[in-house]
């Protein structure tokens, strides 16, 4: 399975306060294709990262299918906004080219995938 990073343009917003504060991060333009729903407390994000059965096409033209739990500390970017520089991702990831089947370029369930959320 190719280990090159995949990137996606995302949009983030605060989402709810009860029973715990949350943050919603979605794919810019197609929010239901790639959605991250985080609980946000103690400068840490933790929550589910998911795609539908169609997967989501990355900037690198690789399609990603994902059902995983992400955790990462929030740090302050140079412009003052929050970002996650080193996040851990536990769960299912599958890759394919744009029109290939799920997993045609590999499938991996693991507890040590990684993710980052960077400002742009």
């Amino acid at each position: 399975m190719d280990r090159s990073p995949l990137s996606f343009p995302m949009v983030a917003a605060a989402a709810g306060t009860s029973p715990h504060p949350g943050v919603q991060v979605v794919l810019d333009g197609n929010p239901g294709e790639l959605e991250l729903e985080f609980l946000s407390e103690n400068l840490t994000l933790r929550g589910g990262l998911g795609t539908t059965g169609d997967g989501v096409l990355s900037n690198e033209a690789t399609r990603l299918w994902m059902h995983a739990i992400g955790t990462g500390p929030v740090t302050r970017a140079s412009d003052g906004r929050g970002e996650v520089a080193t996040g851990n991702l536990m769960g299912y990831i599958a890759l394919g080219r744009a029109f290939e089947d799920e997993g045609a370029r590999g499938t991996c369930s693991a507890r040590d995938h990684t993710f980052t959320l960077r400002t742009r």
Binding site: V26, G32, E35, E37, G48, G50, T52, H67, I69, G91
Partner: peptide, 11 residues
């Protein structure tokens, strides 16, 4: 007990 389906809520 945590959800493991992790399907996009908006979809």
């Amino acid at each position: 007990v945590e959800d493991g389906e992790i399907y996009p809520c908006l979809a």
